[in-house]
Design a protein around this nucleic acid. Structure first.
Lengths: 100, 100
DNA sequence: CCCTAATATTCCAAAATTGGAATATTAGGG
DNA sequence: CCCTAATATTCCAATTTTGGAATATTAGGG
């Protein structure tokens, strides 16, 4: 699954966003996403396979953290297109304040 | 379909890349992609619906061009993550950071 | 009008994705 | 050992996506 596919699901984007603030146990993600635990676990698996998150054990818990390497690749993929808006810093607001 | 989903298919990413060099008729994309025409037409529909391409008629032909607005959104989505590699001089980085 | 070129749409089966429910695994604690 | 908490995996039905083939549409040209 490519990074684009991995990012295709809103729940997965939310997970990345949450991990942006630092390492979290799977349970914290389950609580934040308000979604059945097995479901979150499956999304985490997709993210792992895409290389977007790392995991380490801490007793029974599994602590997830962001691996930004694929995001850097995405950034690179975007590069050739940036010339279309580079310098055009007009007011096209931060569309980005959505919840995903 | 979100922009992430629209970008999920390699053929669609190739189309965007081709259109990066300027407007092209659908037929040119069919030739470049080496894929059955109806298939390309369907990918173009997905791209249209995601707002990634514009189309205008020229007699029987349809000329496609890039609409970069959704790519700018993607760029914005990426923003909060850039701090993880900002300053870390990656080999890919400054491709086009010229100051003229 | 009819013909042709260019492109889009529909129909269909195959493959992949997703969610829900049940179950399995893993790692301490008593 | 057994128990419990935390997390992962499996199984299944529903939905979505994809490709191939056939067909439809659109817009001139003769």
């Amino acid at each position: 699954m490519s990074i684009f596919d991995a990012l295709g699901d809103p729940a997965r984007r939310k997970i990345l966003s949450l991990l942006g603030n630092g390492e979290l146990p799977a349970g914290a993600l389950v609580a934040a996403l308000r979604m059945p635990q097995p479901n979150v676990s499956k999304h985490l698996k997709v993210l792992r396979e895409a290389g977007l998150v790392r995991v380490r054990g801490d007793a029974q818990r599994r602590l997830y953290s962001l691996d930004t390497a694929p995001l850097r690749e995405l950034d690179a993929w975007l590069s050739p297109y940036r010339r279309f808006w580079a310098g055009k810093l007009d007011a096209l607001g931060d569309h980005l304040s959505r919840s995903d």
